[in-house]
């Protein structure tokens, strides 16, 4: 159950995460697209709004959520995002969610350690597919510090809510730190030094998705 702030993540919790991520991404879609227009191809917010809207539509109904697994919910959401997003964020977010879902396995409720392992698996999937390292001015610059901060918080005795909050805060800081970076992946990399001085849209949207996780796991 997700009734307690410190409880694990069950299928309803995973679905709530996807819904909250869709809300945040849609609310910020214009800002993300504006960021993308500066150094990318100007469609990030629109694409992610479309992808996460499709992910919400693919969520199981309320009765089925009582029966299914959080891992399955994330895998289905990832598949919908891959089909409907259209830009590079589709395969990247789709891989992140599918790997996270696979890492959760068949458990009916993921505890705080399992969610940390899922974040790590998501990061590995994104890096494998996109071949990006930290400092390349990509979503990895938000996701990598988030996974690390989550693990550190958990080691320090934090519960699921505390660990996801640490991850979201680290993702925000990681995204902000992309401003002076020179892009080494994607369209922005063609701009060379002209790509500096801008916030990376992928890191920004990743911070929103991790904030969504903190929001739903922190709810009473």
């Amino acid at each position: 159950m997700t009734g307690q702030a410190s409880a694990g993540l069950d299928a309803r919790g995973a679905a709530a995460w996807i819904r909250r991520a869709a809300e945040l991404v849609s609310a910020e879609a214009e800002r993300l697209t504006r960021l993308d227009a500066a150094i990318g191809d100007g469609d990030h917010g629109h694409n992610l709004h479309r992808g996460f809207t499709a992910a919400v539509a693919a969520l199981p109904g309320d009765a089925e959520l009582g029966e299914t697994r959080p891992g399955k919910v994330l895998i289905a959401a990832g598949r919908a995002i891959v089909s409907k997003t259209g830009g590079a964020s589709g395969p990247l977010y789709g891989t992140a969610l599918r790997r996270a879902g696979k890492a959760l396995g068949d458990a009916s409720e993921a505890d705080a350690a399992a969610v940390g392992a899922a974040l790590k698996a998501a990061l590995e999937g994104v890096q494998e597919l996109g071949q990006a390292n930290e400092g390349d001015k990509t979503m990895v610059d938000a996701l990598a510090p988030a996974a690390a901060a989550y693990a550190a918080a958990l080691d320090g005795g934090a519960d699921l809510a505390g660990s996801t909050r640490a991850a979201a805060d680290a993702a925000d800081a990681g995204a902000a730190a992309t401003v002076p970076m020179q892009a080494r992946k994607g369209r922005a990399s063609y701009l060379g030094p002209r790509s500096t001085g801008h916030l990376d849209p992928g890191a920004s949207s990743t911070a929103l998705v991790l904030r969504a996780l903190a929001d739903v796991t922190g709810r009473e």
């Binding site: 830009g87 590079a88 589709g90 395969p91 597919l129 369209r187």
Partner: peptide, 14 residues
């Protein structure tokens, strides 16, 4: 060609 085309191809292969 570029970007999402390449990522989609790699994902499909996986």
């Amino acid at each position: 060609d570029i970007g999402s085309s390449v990522l989609t191809a790699k994902m499909l292969i996986e």
